[in-house]
Design a protein around this nucleic acid. Structure first.
Length: 489
RNA sequence: CGGGGCAUAGCACAGCCUGGUAGUGCGCUCGCUUUGGGAGCGAGAGGUCGCAAGUUCGAAUCCUGCUGCCCCGACCA
């Protein structure tokens, strides 16, 4: 194993792949396009899940689980939805194997399914088919359900975490009595995602709405959060859809309103996936390895003893044990690495690679002086601190690191967001990367032409876009606000 | 689906052109010395060379077919 990671500046995508492997987050599996999420990577995902799940519960949602298989006829019902996903569906056609006379196994041709089952690329179809039976009256609404699940989208080209054929996510599916309530829900959950991205992942995001061409298949409006990665490319980190009455009509979900009239229910759906792991990695990490925000780090503090003899180690451990207990009591996850199969220098490098926010090194010299060496992963600085009140010190240091990582990412985004007003500037800026804020005439034709010529897409129309009269950067036609363009993952 | 690359020990690779019975580094095991930024020395263990068929006295190496993975494009969260 070579020691140094590839440099971000030299080969960003190689750096990304290597950091995932070396930090033990995930690896490619024997199955094309599918990854194995390893324990350390999964621990981060679990922390994400926990935080998000708490936020969903706090906004009134409950969890449930719907089937992996969607009958083809269900998927067909909402036309746009069906069309949008048709090209990337895995299909189950048989339900049995049998011994192959030539050895091994073969699909039993006598076990063909009457109707093919689609492995869910998303669950609107199966869920709205179910909601039909659950919703009769306005009193049954709103129905606020989330599920944690895996989905499959047969992508032509995959990348660890960013785009895999199978991925893990949560999908919220809600039903409401009024359009206003559903829109409100859509926006509320977008806010939850933005809150999570910024306050847990320490990744600043732009909240906005997608243009019609970038909309979710079957949605009336798609909201999104967009983050900027260190290589200047945008990453869609979460989406929230206002589905109107499209699915209610396709699956005939009607309820009796307060006026005793039949009405179609209003729908939303919203999701974030293991793609967030990719965002987390690419937003903060450096050439030494992963940089994790304390709130999502599986190990927040690692303690490494520096010793020569087993007696020294015993002395150090005796001093460390109560500190570990105190840290744990304070809710800080701590690892004491007293393994003797690696030297301290190796451990320093290893925990840096894994993004552990704080490292304590404690040797005999420290014991005599009553100090400990405290090293920060985010700044790569270290200093000697008194052991006294170390728990208080670390608690506030973790907060400081969380804030610092966010500030750093925010500064990066600000330094890489450019307002541009001419086509020439637009082209050269897009080439260099970053968010480009420019006027757009609102037509799909212009959007498509820009995409063809520059590979940049409209990431979103920011919710907080200021009204200003301007001219479309491409066509020169009038425009009332700027939109965000970027090359995207 | 197009274009390229790769498949040899747990990992990273060399060997292939020019066929002769398997090699390097890391890791692993044991021992000694080390230990405040990826330790040193010594001794060991570990491989039906992706699969199948072919050429040959002999194939990791040459030929044919297959499979899988990675990278680059088109499509997408």
């Amino acid at each position: 194993m070579s020691k140094a990671l590839p440099k971000r500046s030299e080969n960003y995508s190689e750096w990304y792949n290597e950091i995932i492997k070396r930090a033990d987050l995930a690896e490619n599996s024997a199955v094309r396009g599918c990854m194995v999420i390893k324990p350390y990577g999964y621990a981060i995902w679990e922390k994400m899940q926990r935080a998000l799940d708490d936020m969903f519960k706090a906004t009134g949602h409950v969890n449930a689980y719907f089937p992996l298989f969607v009958p083809k006829s269900f998927l067909e019902k909402e036309e746009e939805h069906a069309e949008g996903f048709a090209k990337e569906c895995a299909v189950v056609t048989h339900y049995r194997l049998k011994a192959n006379p030539e050895g091994g196994l073969m699909v039993d041709p006598n076990a063909k399914l009457e109707e093919e089952l689609i492995i869910r690329p998303t669950s609107e179809a199966i869920i709205w088919n179910t909601y039909k039976n659950w919703i009769q009256s306005w009193r049954d609404l709103p129905l606020l359900i989330n599920q944690w699940a895996n989905v499959v989208r047969w992508e032509m080209r995959t990348r660890l975490f960013l785009r895999t054929a199978e991925f893990l996510w949560q999908e919220g599916h809600t039903a409401h009595a009024t359009r206003e309530e559903a829109v409100e829900e859509t926006e509320r959950m977008l806010g939850v995602y933005a809150d999570f991205a910024e306050n847990w992942m320490a990744v600043p995001v732009i909240q906005g709405v997608k243009t019609p061409s970038e909309r979710f298949a079957g949605a009336e409006e798609t909201y999104c959060i967009e983050a900027l990665m260190q290589d200047g490319k945008a990453l869609q980190a979460g989406t929230s859809h206002f589905l109107g009455q499209n699915f209610a009509k396709s699956f005939d979900v009607q309820f009796v309103n307060k006026e005793n009239q039949l009405e179609y229910a209003w729908a939303t759906s919203w999701g974030v996936s293991t793609r967030l792991m990719g965002a987390l990695i690419m937003a903060h990490s450096d050439d030494q390895g992963l940089v994790l925000p304390p709130k999502l780090a599986p190990i927040q503090v690692v303690i490494i003893p520096i010793y020569r003899s087993p007696e020294d180690l015993a002395t150090i451990s005796e001093k460390v044990d109560p500190i570990i207990a105190e840290l744990k009591a304070a809710g800080i996850s701590v690892k004491y690495d007293d393994s003797d199969n690696q030297r301290s220098g190796w451990k320093f490098a290893e925990y840096e690679l894994k993004g552990v926010p704080i490292r304590l090194a404690l040797g005999m010299r420290d014991l005599e002086a009553g100090t400990v060496e405290v090293a920060r992963r985010d700044t790569l600085t270290k200093e000697s601190m008194p052991l006294e009140k170390i728990v208080e010190t670390l608690t506030s240091l973790l907060d400081e690191i969380q804030t610092n990582i966010y500030d750093k990412a925010l500064k990066f985004r600000e330094a890489n967001t450019f307002a541009v007003d001419s086509w020439e500037d637009f082209k050269s800026q897009i080439e260099q990367g970053g968010f480009v804020s420019a006027h757009w005439d609102g037509t799909p034709e212009t959007e498509e032409t820009i995409k063809q010529q520059t590979k940049a897409t409209i990431r979103c129309i920011p919710l907080d876009a200021v009204e200003e009269s301007g001219k479309c950067v491409f066509s020169g036609n009038p425009s009332s606000k700027r939109v965000i363009f970027a090359k995207a993952y």
